[in-house]
Amino acid sequence: MKIGFIGLGNMATAMIGGMLQKGMAKSEDIIGSSKTETTAEKVKTKFNINTTTDNTAVAEQADILFLAVKPIFFPEVIAGIKDAVKADTLIISIAAGRKLQYLKDAFGRPELKLIRCMPNTPALVLEGCTGVCAGENVTEEETEQVLSLLRSFGIASVVPERLMDVVVGVSGSSPAYVFMFIEAMADEAVAAGMPRKQAYEFAAQSVLGSAKMVLETGKHPGELKDMVCSPGGTTIQAVKVLEEKGMRAAVMDAMDACIEKSKCM
């Protein structure tokens, strides 16, 4: 089975790294293309995979083909490869806002097997989160095959396409919100006298550990919050200020803006 990547940016290289590290693919099974020779050579050296600047060469060989370019480049890229893709190739888009119907219209080949997914950047450290929806020509077995690949760098779940814009808001873009939260906590720790490096470490580890508690205990986040808030203690005072400043509403409004932007792309 040959796995192809058109686009070799951060997300594509994170996915490639996960697949290789988890043994889901061998380096000789992967081929990728990039716009520049410099990027192609860099990725080839890092992963020992075959790379090129010719998208058509990748499309012709791939049994599973990831479209890993930015949405604005989709018309140009698809126009260049639509006649080269094999009828039984699984074509997987990782672009925000590009619906299955868009892909179907752009390729102009109703027999093609199309899948839309939305991974996020924590895939770089094998802790990604990916939402997946499949077109009508994709079998359950083929969907499971793709999920297995995506789970090599985190979790992956099937969602109905109507929720894919929500996936963008809750996981695709949300690492940026979390990074801002970590940065803000660290900034105040520095203001209170902690060295910058140590402040980032403490803040990031606290977020990591809190997330693991949500996933591994199965408890409601509100219940876990209450466990930290001792009567008359320090934590409840901090929570009070966050509520006064509208933290929840700010996060929800930010996600709403993100979701609406995804819908309009």
Rank of each mutant, 00 (worst) to 15 (best):
Q205I: 04
M164S: 09
M180W: 08
T121E: 13
P160N: 13
L20W: 03
L90W: 02
I115C: 01
V132K: 07
L100Q: 07
G32P: 01
G232D: 15
V159A: 00
T45H: 10
F181M: 14
I236P: 14
C133N: 12
A204V: 05
N10W: 05
G193V: 07
G172C: 05
E216L: 10
C133A: 15
A84P: 09
L242N: 09
A57H: 06
G18S: 07
V132E: 09
A14T: 08
P231C: 13
I155F: 03
I259M: 10
A176H: 10
I6A: 01
T51P: 03
I182N: 06
L20N: 13
S148F: 05
P119R: 05
F153T: 02
L90H: 09
M180N: 12
A156S: 09
K240F: 13
P110K: 06
S171M: 08
I182Y: 09
N48L: 10
P195T: 12
V158C: 03
S262I: 00
L163P: 14
K82W: 02
P231K: 04
H220R: 08
M227E: 15
V190L: 05
D63K: 09
N120D: 07
T121D: 02
M11I: 15
K35A: 09
L112D: 02
A134D: 14
S152I: 08
V138D: 05
V168E: 01
G193H: 06
A62V: 05
I259L: 08
S210H: 07
M15Y: 02
K212T: 07
K212Q: 12
A238L: 14
I49C: 00
T56Y: 01
K261L: 11
S173E: 09
G23K: 09
V138A: 02
A59K: 07
A68I: 02
M1F: 05
M118R: 10
V159S: 02
V125R: 11
I78L: 11
L90Q: 08
Q237E: 15
K197E: 15
R109W: 01
A186W: 12
T13H: 04
D63M: 06
E37S: 08
M180C: 09
A191R: 05
T39C: 13
G7R: 11
E140P: 09
K99V: 06
R151M: 14
I64D: 00
D226A: 11
Q205E: 14
T234I: 04
K263N: 01
V159C: 07
L147C: 01
K2F: 04
I64P: 01
N10S: 10
E183K: 04
L65D: 00
A12M: 03
N55P: 04
S173Q: 04
A96S: 15
K99Q: 12
V170I: 15
I31F: 07
F107N: 03
A257T: 11
E28T: 12
K26V: 03
D253W: 02
A189Y: 06
E76G: 10
D83H: 04
K44N: 10
T89Y: 03
A12H: 00
Q198G: 04
G135K: 11
A238D: 14
T143D: 11
D29H: 10
Y177H: 07
T52A: 00
M185G: 06
E183D: 12
T217E: 03
L147E: 02
A59P: 11
